[in-house]
Design a protein around this nucleic acid. Structure first.
Lengths: 408, 408
DNA sequence: CTCATTTTGTTCGATCATCAAATTATTGTT
DNA sequence: AACAATAATTTGATGATCGAACAAAATGAG
C-alpha cells in the first residue's frame, strides 16, 4: 500500500516540475531561447520567463548571446539563448578499467575542461585501498585540472556488475573484491555526491543521448572491449531494473562447452568476444606471445593484433570472422528480446570492425529472424575514449538538475 | 526537437492528472475510503472529496458501504468506501489460442460476469476471415452474456509476435497469415476500442498486478504452455519496447542443433519446452500416438501425458526432467539479463510442475550464477485460465480510466 | 529611409486546483 | 457520558499558470 508517486502534489512541487522540465529541455537540446523552451516544454512564454528569470538569479543559467542567424532565418526579433552557467561548478567523470583510469573534468554545461588517461594497477588492492586510491586520484586530478570552480559531483563508470541502489560494485574483473561499497566510500572520502554505473550502460547512455535519432524508438548499444556490455533505451530512457545493474549481456551463456569466463561461469558471450578472449585465441593460432602485463592485453597489443590480421594473416583473420559469427548469434538473441529499431556497435573493440563486419552480416543474413529482424538497423560507431566518461558525467549533471529544480 | 511530454500544462491538465491518480489508486488497491485515497495519492482530503464527488456525479464511482471493521481497527468514524460503478459498463476480454477461444466478460469494476471457453478452428482462415470470425464471436458472446450494460472496450490476448503500436499480429502459430491488422479490423467491425497484447505479456501483467509483493522490484513472469512467454515488470510497470511486442523469450535460441521451431528458426527455447515439443518428444520415447487434431496436443492429451509420467513411466519422467534442465538454463539467461527479484512460473505447462521442479532446482544450483543468482526467488503459480484474459481486461480498463480522467 | 511584419520577451489581471484550518459526523474507549 | 480518534466537508487563502496586451528588435518592401 505504498504511494503511487509522492511527486507533484501541491503548488510548490508543481512549480518544481516545471523547473525540472525547463532544465531537461536545456540539457537535451543545448542552448535555447526562452521561446524555444516554451515550445519544447509546452509552458507559456510568461511561465518560461518567470522560471528562467529565477534560474538566472540563482546562478544556474546564463544568457549566452543571440540566436545564431541560421536558427532564426526570417524576420522577427532574434531570441536570446540561455544555457547552463559554466562557472557554476564542475563534474568529475571517472572510468575504471583494468589497471587503467580515465579522469574527465566537465563544467556545469557539460563541456570538457580536461581529460586524462592514467595507468594504475588495481588488481592487488583490497576494497578499502581501492576506494582510497580512487578517491586520491580524484582529489589530485581536481586539484591539478580544476579551474577554481567547486566540484559538484562525481560520476563513476565501472566494469563489472554494479548495484546502483546499494551503490556497490558487486563483481568486477578490475578487482578480486566483491560487493565493494564504492559510492559510500567515495562520498565519505570526497564529501561529494557520487553516481555509479556499469561502464557499458553509461557509454550506451552517452551515445543514445548524443544523437536525436537514437532517442526515438528502441536503441540497443552493444559495447565491445575489455568485456561485452549492453544498454537498451526506449525513447531515450534506459531499460533497467530497480537495482540499476546493467543488462549483463556479456555474461549470458553462448555455448555450454565454451571457455571459462572471468566471472567464473563457462561459455559467456564475453569469453568469446572480449579483448582478452580474442588475444587468448590469437596466441593459440599464431606466434603471438602473452600480454606484457597480467592476462589482459594492452591497447597497443590489441592494435598490433588487429593490424596483423588485417595485413593478411589468415589464421588471425579467421579468428575475427569467427568473432563476427558469435556476435551475429548474440545480436540475434538481442533482437528477439528487445526488438530494437537500431543496434549501435561501439567500444574499443570496434578497432577490429573491418575484420568482423563481413562475417557478421553474412551470419545475420543466414540466420535472419522471421518477422523481427527486418526492423533493426545495425550501425558501427568509431570509438572515442570520452564516451566512457560522458555517460556518468551526464547522469551526474541530470541528478544535480533534479536537485536544483526541487529546492528553489 | 519533439516535446518532452505535452502532458500537465495548465490547470485543466493538472486536475486531470489528479483525477488519473485517484483512479489509479482505486484500480490498484480495490475499494478505498476517501481518506485512504488521500494517503495513497498524496492529495489533501479536500481535493479527494472534490474529485471523487465529481466522479460520482459522472457515474464513474459509487459508494459501496462502510469500511469493513478489520480495516479501521480502532476508534474513529469509519470511512465510506468508494469503488468503480459496476453498472457503468463492461469489458470483453478475448484470448486467442490454437483452435481455441476464451471469452470473458467483466464489469467496470473488473469483476467477472461470465467466461466461456470455445473450440474454434482458425488455422485455415485468411486474415479477413479471421478478424470477421473473432468479431462475430465477440458479438454473439456479448449478446448472450451481456447484462444489458454497454460494452466499453475489448481486450485481445494473442499468441505470437504482436506489434501494439500498429495493432498488428505480426506472426502467430494460430494462423498462417502474417501482419494481420487485428485492432483496426475489430474496431471497425465492433465500433469499440480494442487493445491487443501478446498473451504471455498480458498474463504476466495480470499476475504481477494481482499481488502487491510482485509490484515491487523486478518480477519476471515466465509462461509455459502452447509456447513459452515472458513478461518483465519493474515496480509494477512492464519493461517493453515502444512497439509493444512482448519479449520473445520463447524464440531465443537455446541450442544450434535443436529441432525446428514453429517460427521457422531452429533450436528456440520454445521448441524444447512448449506443449507441442514435450508431446513430440513423448511420441518418440513411448507408444503415445499423435494428437487427435493437427499437430497440437489438446489439454486432455497433455494431462494424460503428465499423468503417465507421474505414474512412473521412466522415459516420460526423464523427458520432463530434461525440460527442467532446459528451463533452468533459460532462467539463468533471464537472471543475467534482468536480475529479477522474483521469477514467477505460470501457465498451463505448470500441470507438469511436480515432474519438473526437482530437476530445475538441481540444475539451477549446479550452474549458479556468480553474484547474481542469490536474489531471484522462484515461485510456481498454479494455472487458472482466467489469467489469460484478466491481463487484457485490466489493460482495457486502465486505458478507459485514462480517457475518463482526461475528458471531464 | 520609413513603416508594416514577424518573432521574442515581459507585465498584468483572471482563473482555478490545491491546501490548511475549521467544522461536522461517527465510531470506540474509559 | 465524556473523550479521543478518525472521516468527510466547507471555506478562505495561496500561487502557478495562462491569455492578452505590450515593448523590443530584427527583416524586408516600397
Amino acid at each position: 500500500m505504498n504511494e503511487i508517486a509522492p511527486l507533484l502534489v501541491g503548488d510548490a512541487s508543481r512549480r518544481d516540475l516545471s523547473r525540472q522540465r525547463v532544465l531537461e529541455a536545456l540539457r537535451r537540446d543545448g542552448p535555447l531561447s526562452r521561446a524555444a523552451i516554451g515550445r519544447l516544454t509546452g509552458l507559456s512564454p510568461a511561465s518560461v520567463s518567470a522560471i528562467t528569470g529565477q534560474f538566472i538569479t540563482e546562478g544556474l543559467l546564463c544568457d549566452i548571446g543571440a540566436d545564431p542567424p541560421e536558427a532564426s532565418a526570417g524576420p522577427g526579433r532574434p531570441g536570446q539563448r540561455l544555457g547552463f552557467h559554466p562557472a557554476r561548478g564542475a563534474i568529475i567523470g571517472l572510468w575504471v578499467g583494468l589497471d587503467r583510469l580515465i579522469l574527465h573534468l566537465a563544467d556545469f554545461s557539460g563541456e570538457t575542461i580536461e581529460a586524462r588517461d592514467e595507468r594504475l594497477p588495481l588488481a592487488a588492492l583490497d576494497a578499502e585501498a581501492l576506494v582510497a586510491i580512487l578517491a586520491d586520484r580524484v582529489v589530485h586530478f581536481s586539484r591539478e585540472a580544476g579551474s577554481g570552480m567547486p566540484i559538484l559531483g562525481v560520476g563513476v563508470a565501472f566494469q563489472g556488475f554494479v548495484d546502483q541502489r546499494k551503490g556497490e560494485v558487486v563483481w568486477s574483473p578490475v578487482t578480486r573484491c566483491t560487493h565493494v561499497p564504492l559510492v559510500a566510500g567515495l562520498e565519505a572520502a570526497l564529501g561529494l555526491p557520487v553516481d555509479l554505473d556499469n561502464d557499458a550502460s553509461a557509454m550506451a547512455f552517452a551515445i543514445t543521448q548524443s544523437e536525436p535519432a537514437l532517442r526515438e524508438g528502441v536503441t540497443a548499444c552493444v559495447m565491445l572491449g575489455d568485456g561485452v556490455g549492453l544498454g537498451v533505451f526506449v525513447d531515450g530512457k534506459p531499460l533497467r531494473g530497480v537495482h540499476g545493474g546493467g543488462i549483463e549481456f556479456g555474461h549470458v551463456r553462448f555455448s555450454a562447452r565454451g571457455p571459462q569466463c572471468r566471472c567464473g561461469a563457462r561459455g559467456c558471450i564475453e569469453s568469446f568476444l572480449a579483448d582478452y578472449a580474442l588475444y587468448r585465441d590469437a596466441m593459440a593460432v599464431s606466434d603471438i606471445g602473452p600480454p606484457a602485463e597480467g592476462r589482459q592485453p594492452s591497447e597497443t597489443e590489441m592494435t598490433r593484433l588487429v593490424a596483423r590480421a588485417a595485413a593478411g594473416d589468415p589464421a588471425l583473420a579467421g579468428l575475427f570472422a569467427e568473432a563476427g559469427r558469435v556476435l551475429a548469434e548474440s545480436l540475434t538473441m538481442l533482437i528477439r528480446l528487445f526488438q530494437p529499431d537500431t543496434i549501435v556497435l561501439c567500444g574499443p573493440g570496434m578497432r577490429a570492425w573491418p575484420l568482423i563486419e563481413e562475417a557478421l552480416h553474412a551470419a545475420l543474413d543466414q540466420r535472419a529472424i522471421p518477422f523481427l529482424a527486418r526492423r533493426a538497423g545495425i550501425r558501427a560507431l568509431p570509438f572515442r575514449p570520452a564516451f566512457l566518461t560522458e555517460g556518468v558525467i551526464r547522469a551526474a549533471l541530470e541528478r544535480l538538475d533534479r536537485r536544483l529544480a526541487a529546492s528553489s
